[in-house]
């Protein structure tokens, strides 16, 4: 129980500082006091909160699912066929430093305002970390394990599904956690300017009505949901990687 005390105190300091600032500023639009933010939060919870969260989660799942799947597939192809790797590597190297957010205008051009923009952003943000990490993980698979599998009579397909992929899983998870962090941020950004559903859109909506307490309330929700998602991923990682002496139970 005591372990809750310390993180809580950090939050309390932050909240206290905010309240102080709102008293000093004395302008509820500029710095809304905590009570109004809380009221806005409660109000939001009774109205659109659930649908907003679900909409954002759908964007996340769609984009992340396709990004991760493509990343894994590309990694497998690049590991298997040197020629493919030669072509894909420079393209990946060039695209990787480009932030997902820079793609917003082109995404709006391609998909119009709606579900497409945030999903595309998450797809892009999750593709590269997973591709790079998966490729690295696959290339580092202990070749003796592959020989053992072949000796035991495994077909080529079985070697890929039951040896290579499980061996590369820790690396893939590292990439997944990275993409989740970056992707969540990019997605909210995308929803803010290019969507009509989701938490990012809700921030924009409150902004239109100059409800700063609404903006802050949504920001709080975004932060919490992001934190919960990462915690869930960490749990999944610990459970699936139980067998690993290094990763089982990592931070």
């Amino acid at each position: 129980m005591l372990s809750w005390l310390e993180p809580m105190s950090g939050l309390l300091v932050l909240a206290g500082g905010w309240q102080l600032a709102s008293i000093i500023a004395n302008n509820p639009t500029l710095v809304p006091p905590l009570q109004t933010i809380w009221a806005a939060l409660v109000d939001l919870a009774h109205t659109d909160l659930t649908s907003d969260i679900i909409a954002s989660l759908i964007h996340l799942a769609g984009g992340f699912g396709t990004g991760a799947a493509l990343g894994l597939l590309l990694a497998l192809f690049c590991a298997r066929f040197q020629l493919v790797a030669v072509v894909i590597d420079p393209i990946a190297e060039f695209l990787r430093p480009i932030s997902a957010i820079a793609w917003i205008p082109i995404a709006i051009l391609l998909f119009g305002v709606g579900q497409g923009v945030p999903m595309f952003l998450i797809f892009y943000a999750s593709l590269f970390p997973i591709f790079v990490n998966a490729l690295d993980g696959i290339r580092r698979v202990d070749p003796t394990l592959i020989r053992a599998a072949e000796m035991l009579g495994a077909s080529r397909r079985l070697v890929v599904t039951h040896i290579v992929l499980p061996a590369a899983l820790p690396a893939v998870f590292a990439g997944a956690r990275l993409s989740l962090g970056v992707g969540w941020v990019a997605m909210v950004a995308g929803e803010l300017v290019g969507a009509d559903t989701g938490l990012g859109y809700r921030i924009e909506y409150f902004q239109e009505f100059f409800s700063m307490e609404g903006v802050m309330a949504t920001i709080v929700v975004v932060g919490i949901v992001g934190y919960v998602l990462d915690a869930l991923l960490r749990l999944l990682q610990a459970s699936l990687l139980r067998w690993s002496p290094v990763n089982g139970g990592s931070r």
């Binding site: 941020v185 803010l192 700063m212 903006v215 920001i219």
Partner: peptide
Amino acid sequence: GVAPIAWIPM
């Protein structure tokens, strides 16, 4: 976890 861009209105 909060997108920097979300702070734009504020």
